[in-house]
Design a protein around this nucleic acid. Structure first.
Lengths: 144, 144
DNA sequence: GTCGGTGCAAACGATTTGCAGCGAT
DNA sequence: ATCGCTGCAAATCGTTTGCACCGAC
């Protein structure tokens, strides 16, 4: 984990940004919850446990900073807030399967979209840089 | 168009709902802009031109009603608001290609996901009812 | 006269912003 | 002494809700 933190620190420094204690705490929370998809508010709560005097605004500003520097990604599951996950934009794409009843999220690693991307690129003259695929349905515990 | 309006009217009546003048206006706006992806606010503006005294709340309530009755669909392009398009959930799936610079949206009709859906269904015991695929990139006018 | 549907204004939740203070360089 | 970073509170934006009113049945 410290290795990752170091890399992030370098990445930020190379862009004239600092990894301040608050930012590091936020990063740690994101790393400790790699499997979850935390909202800004949730990150805030978790950070507060360790450093009670961070402000919510700082969390938002830091998440924005991390996003801009491709340190994290944001996903919108349609539940009214953005959610964040560690990993840069260029990292290998995974997709989400979301249970409409319990909200559980499964990640799948398949990436069968290369072909489709090429097709869109050719047919519509559209330079695709990213894609997002979500499946909605019911998990085994919530199946009708 | 009147044919569609009639069908919607029947659909609503079958669920004890009425197609009031306001609701019809909202439906007309949606139909006249089938190719766009209007936000609630945008629908409101367009409806106001014809019927200046509709309220924004009515627009939201009507869109919700249409959603619940599978008359329209909602999509989230990550620009801070839900957007709506005519067409029910069970209708044939199309996907969106979104230009990150000018915001232009192209729709593509391919549906290569059946196979992947089956796989997820089998491997994770997850009953998939819907999926959502978006491509982000740059259209031919905005290409670097 | 009931009751669904409406307009308006107030309330709301997520996010952003203005500003004064702080701390490393 | 500067300037980026911060906390706090206020502002903003999209959306929802409470409420009194209206109009069809």
């Amino acid at each position: 984990m410290n290795k990752v933190i170091n890399e992030v620190s370098k990445k930020l420094k190379s862009q004239e940004y600092k990894l301040t204690p608050q930012r590091e705490q936020i990063l740690r929370v994101l790393l400790e919850n790699k499997d979850k998809h935390l909202s800004a508010e949730e990150v805030y709560m978790l950070v507060k446990k360790k450093s009670p005097d961070v402000g919510l605004a700082t969390v938002y500003r830091t998440l924005e900073l991390f996003l801009d520097n491709d340190i994290i990604r944001s996903v919108n599951f349609g539940d009214g807030c953005k959610r964040y996950e560690f990993g840069d934009q260029e990292g290998h794409h995974h997709h989400h399967v979301i249970c409409l009843k319990c909200g559980k999220i499964i990640e799948i690693d398949e990436d069968l979209l290369e072909e489709l991307e090429k097709k869109v690129n050719k047919e519509h003259n559209f330079k695709i840089t990213n894609h997002e695929l979500k499946f909605f349905g019911y998990c085994k515990d919530c199946a009708d």
